[in-house]
Design a protein around this nucleic acid. Structure first.
Lengths: 222, 222
DNA sequence: TATCTATTCAATATAAATATTGAATAGGTG
DNA sequence: CACCTATTCAATATTTATATTGAATAGATA
């Protein structure tokens, strides 16, 4: 094996793994799997794909060794095979947010068009928890909450929030979070809470970002 | 704009930027540009591409806003537009090295087949410099050295090393580095030095990794 | 202004990725 | 064992990416 063959192999493999991420649906699937294990059915549902199509994309990710499977009863659950997968996804996300004006524009416009509220960074949230009372609210589906959430966060999935408002304190500030900066659950939650007279803001990033920084988390699997 | 349109736009853009990296040649080009500004001619030369083909790949990277250009006389120089580009490339590299056994295997085999020497990590190099005398040797082409190198490193490009051995100390340990873990210049240097009776090892990572950690660097442009 | 040189563009053929459809399969469940 | 269900496979049409070739262009130099 000469120098050129060596390089062709190495860069070829790097490109192969990168190609496996380089698709809009797979980008969305990876973000979803960063929350925990998800079944094919749920993935198809969340991403507006047909089951067959979702499965096809999952095969691509599996072949690239980015995901692993776990059968439970009739369902097959997929998960990210490793922390480095989310790290790479996050690096690409950060690159996109910083370099691609379309993303910045669309994110801003979408937020503004519905409900324009202040957001809080992870550092700011840590400060707040240290210097006073804050309620941290996880509005993702409960299965995601159970597989891991910010320590001391309470779970009220976004679909249940409207009828479970009385569970939340009226005075202390509420910080809502969800899957990440492209997830709108937290925005919807903040809009709903603000209208009902609560003091609420969204966390700019999501649970996977929090976890990656090795900040305190809790797991409540059964 | 509804939720689905928003997501399609965002993940579509993320996929677009990821696709622009998802090619063996472009992966190699990005690593090269992480060393500094490089002309189209040099890129084509280093990557064994035709000029037209190299230009075509550079256009893809330019359209994705990963690179910027700078004309100097007759030549057009390309550079990475931002730190985040190398960060994303590095995250993909780390993912590949960790998940893809082909890469691990090929790297090990290639190194073993030629010259199997101990390597030193960045942390170990820092320790060494603090606790004793070490000569840090940059064996990349001089233009790359001039655009930025590890502080106090000396430059002897790999092609000149054989006839410039007398410039190096016989007793103190020499740590050679180059572009990164897939670059073989440092390996070649260590093999040459060891044969000539020097105490030499390679640095596992390259200059861009060092720089990204904000460790001390020097620039000697003219 | 004419010429030269590095780079880009354009055209084309080939290869790879994607979405869609319906059939096949594997593994639980009764 | 037969049936049911979630998932995967296979075939196809369409779109997109890639390499190659030669011509065009932009800008420096004389």
């Amino acid at each position: 094996m000469n120098k050129r063959q060596f390089k062709d192999t190495v860069y070829g493999e790097l490109a192969r793994i990168t190609k496996s991420m380089a698709n809009p649906h797979r980008m969305e699937i990876i973000e979803l799997l960063a929350q925990g294990e998800v079944s094919v059915e749920q993935i198809a549902d969340q991403t507006n794909l047909t089951i067959a199509n979702a499965s096809q994309h999952l095969q691509v990710l599996k072949q690239a060794q980015l995901v692993e499977v776990n059968r439970q009863g009739n369902f097959i659950f997929y998960r990210l095979s490793n922390d480095n997968v989310f790290k790479a996804w996050k690096a690409l996300r950060d690159l996109g947010v910083e370099r691609i004006s379309t993303i910045e524009f669309v994110v801003k416009e979408f937020r503004k068009s519905m409900f324009d509220f202040e957001a809080v960074t992870i550092e700011e949230l840590i400060e707040k928890t240290e210097s006073g009372k804050v309620t941290i609210l996880d509005v993702r589906p409960e299965s995601e909450y159970r597989q891991g959430h910010i320590a001391s966060a309470v779970s009220i999935p976004i679909e249940e929030l409207a009828r479970r408002l009385r569970e939340l304190p009226k005075r202390t500030e509420i910080i809502a979070y969800c899957r990440g900066p492209f997830c709108v659950y937290a925005d919807e939650a903040v809009a709903l809470l603000a209208q009902a007279g609560f003091k609420a803001k969204r966390l700019t990033e999501g649970f996977p970002d929090w976890k990656l920084q090795e900040l305190p988390i809790e797991v409540s699997m059964n």
